[in-house]
Computed example of a mutant assay.
Amino acid sequence: MPFPILRTPFVVLSEIISILEPNEAVTSSFCSKNFKCLLSNQYRHRKKFVMLEAYMVDFEDDIRVAIAPGMEETKIVLSVVPMSKLNESTNKVVEINGHKAEFSSEVPIFYFEDKKLGSQWIVDYVTGLFNIDVRRLAIGRNSTWAVDWINSRQEKSMNRVLLVEPTNNDSKADEAVDYVLKNARSSDWIGIDEYVSDNYRFNGTLGPVQEVSISEKGYWVTCDNLMNFDAIEIYIGNSRLTISDLNPFLRHWRAGGSPRLEYLEVCLENGTIFENFDDDLEVVRTDEVGTYPVSFGDPVVIHNCYSIQRMDGVKALFICDRYFHFIVQHGKATSWRE
Score class of each variant (00 low, 15 high):
Ile5Ala: 03
Arg7Trp: 11
Arg7Tyr: 08
Thr8Cys: 15
Pro9Thr: 02
Glu15Met: 05
Glu21Val: 05
Asn23His: 09
Ala25Ser: 15
Val26Ile: 07
Ser32Ala: 09
Leu38Tyr: 06
Leu38Asp: 04
Leu38Val: 10
Gln42His: 14
Arg46Gln: 07
Lys47Gly: 03
Phe49Leu: 01
Ala54Ser: 08
Met56Lys: 04
Val57Glu: 08
Met71Trp: 10
Glu73Pro: 01
Lys75Ala: 11
Ser79Ile: 07
Val80Thr: 08
Val81Gln: 03
Val81Met: 08
Val81Asp: 06
Leu86Trp: 06
Leu86Lys: 13
Asn91Gly: 15
Asn97Ala: 05
Phe103Glu: 02
Ser105Thr: 12
Val107Arg: 03
Pro108Cys: 00
Phe112Ala: 13
Asp114Gln: 03
Gly118Cys: 15
Gln120Asp: 03
Ile122Leu: 10
Val123Pro: 07
Gly128Tyr: 06
Asn131Leu: 14
Val134Thr: 15
Arg135Gly: 11
Ala138Pro: 00
Ile139Phe: 07
Trp145Gly: 02
Asp148Phe: 09
Ser152Lys: 10
Lys156Pro: 03
Met158Lys: 04
Arg160Pro: 02
Leu162Ser: 11
Leu163Ile: 14
Val164Ser: 08
Val164Asp: 10
Asn169Trp: 01
Asp170Ser: 13
Ala173Gln: 11
Asp174Lys: 04
Ala176Ile: 07
Tyr179Asn: 11
Asn183His: 13
Arg185Thr: 13
Ser187Ala: 07
Asp188Tyr: 12
Glu194Thr: 03
Tyr200Asp: 04
Gly204Thr: 09
Gly204Ser: 06
Thr205Arg: 09
Thr205Glu: 15
Pro208Ser: 00
Val212Phe: 06
Val212Pro: 01
Ser213Pro: 02
Thr222His: 08
Asp224Gly: 04
Leu226Tyr: 00
Phe229Asp: 01
Ala231Phe: 11
Ile232Phe: 10
Ile232Trp: 04
Ile234Phe: 05
Tyr235Ala: 06
Asn238Met: 14
Arg240Ser: 11
Ile243Trp: 00
Pro248Leu: 04
Trp253Cys: 00
Gly256Thr: 03
Ser258Phe: 03
Ser258Asp: 01
Ser258Asn: 15
Arg260His: 09
Glu265Gln: 06
Val266Cys: 02
Asn270Thr: 11
Asn270Tyr: 15
Phe274Asn: 01
Asp287Pro: 00
Glu288Lys: 12
Thr291Lys: 13
Val301Leu: 09
Val301Thr: 14
Ile302Gln: 04
His303Val: 02
Tyr306Arg: 01
Tyr306Pro: 00
Arg310Thr: 09
Val314Trp: 00
Phe318Pro: 12
Phe318Tyr: 07
Cys320Arg: 01
Cys320Val: 06
Phe324Met: 13
His325Gln: 05
Gln329His: 10
Thr334Asn: 09
Trp336Phe: 15
